[in-house]
């Protein structure tokens, strides 16, 4: 593959991933409102376009038209940096996710992954930990008590739950033997999905994923009812939009990571027996991965409209006293079983 072809292929892939995450985040807002409405026996937005499909566009236009307010007492630089960091970090996580195997076109092999770094999971963990800075900086720069409380909650929550999440992933890495997301996805052919080997690990991971993305029941940083929006109380216009958008992109990315780590990524059982051409298989793999991702996005919303918010001490109890011991236990069991099997 020549260098120019390589650059074009990577650029196209990067832009595609970027656009897809933005569009999915956009329509997640629509889906969220629809799911909320349906679960409450309502219809939801249905006026803008057919079935209200243009509602996200209308919301976006509204966000852009709103007055941009920067409080006088705030630190202007940090105030703008906050949402930028939140948006930036949520957009770059998609780079390591394997969206499919690879396409063979004109003798070249185009892998459907922007970059296959051999520490893919660590990269994801690192980027999500930077993501909390967006919230912290925004909450701090607002110079508002509610925002600061929201930011403090966000940072302590993320730190607590990242530990359990990391430990759950360690158990997963022990079974797969690789940190590369591509390697993990490729190892889960047929029914060898990691959920079968790591059910407890998945449970811990999904709870932590809810906490990391600030979704109900762990939406304490925002908690509209107590902190009137938490860290983004002072934000308006598109800067607020960035925060909300970043949350939905995070939701999409964490759904993708959950599908890749525990639900076989682009793999589907029995599909290998159909004898399809590799290119068709690759495209079908992308479809399967997105089906799984959409299920998880729905699951996020489903949980949000079912379960009430935790109290902060309950959240900390759950994180430190239950999830971390549980994940250490999971790790120990996994290590023991591996030791017995490979003696």
């Amino acid at each position: 593959m020549t260098l120019s072809l390589f650059i074009i292929y990577k650029a196209v892939l990067v832009i595609l991933v970027f656009l897809i995450s933005l569009v999915i985040a956009m329509y997640s807002t629509y889906a969220e409102r629809k799911v909320a409405a349906f679960m409450q026996d309502r219809i939801g937005p249905n006026r803008a376009g057919p079935f209200g499909l243009l509602q996200p566009v209308a919301d976006g236009v509204k966000m852009f038209m709103k007055e941009e307010i920067i409080p006088q007492v705030s630190n202007k630089f940090l105030f703008i940096l906050g949402p930028s960091v939140a948006m930036f970090t949520s957009c770059i996580t998609g780079a390591v996710i394997p969206w499919g195997t690879s396409l063979h076109i004109a003798g070249h092999d185009f892998a459907l992954q922007v970059t296959d770094i051999n520490i893919g999971i660590l990269y994801v963990m690192a980027v999500t930990s930077i993501g909390v800075y967006g919230i912290m900086i925004g909450g701090w720069a607002s110079n508002n008590k509610y925002s600061l409380l929201g930011a403090l909650r966000a940072s302590s929550q993320m730190i607590s739950y990242e530990v359990a999440m990391g430990l759950a992933i360690i158990a997963l890495v022990m079974t797969t033997g690789t940190l590369s997301l591509k390697g993990i996805a490729a190892a889960q052919t047929g029914w060898h999905w990691n959920i079968v080997y790591q059910p407890l690990g998945f449970l811990i991971f999904i709870i932590c994923a809810f906490a990391e993305t600030n979704r109900t029941p762990f939406d304490l940083p925002e908690s509209d009812s107590e902190l009137i929006g938490g860290y983004h109380t002072e934000y308006s216009s598109m800067k607020l939009g960035f925060y909300l958008f970043a949350e939905y992109i995070n939701m999409f990315i964490s759904s993708a990571i959950m599908s890749t780590l525990y639900f076989g990524g682009y793999n589907m059982p029995f599909i290998g027996r159909l004898g399809l051409s590799p290119n068709t298989m690759a495209i079908l793999g992308v479809v399967f991965l997105f089906a799984k991702i959409f299920f998880f996005i729905f699951f996020f919303m489903w949980v949000r409209w079912t379960i009430p918010r935790f109290r902060f001490d309950q959240l900390m109890n759950l994180g430190w006293k239950i999830l971390i011991p549980l994940s250490i236990f999971n790790m120990a069991i996994t290590g023991f079983i591996i030791l017995v099997l490979h003696k």
Partner: peptide, 12 residues
């Protein structure tokens, strides 16, 4: 319960 309501007739 919420999933049941998801498929129920809407009152709107």
């Amino acid at each position: 319960i919420t999933l049941n309501h998801f498929f129920k007739k809407k009152v709107t």
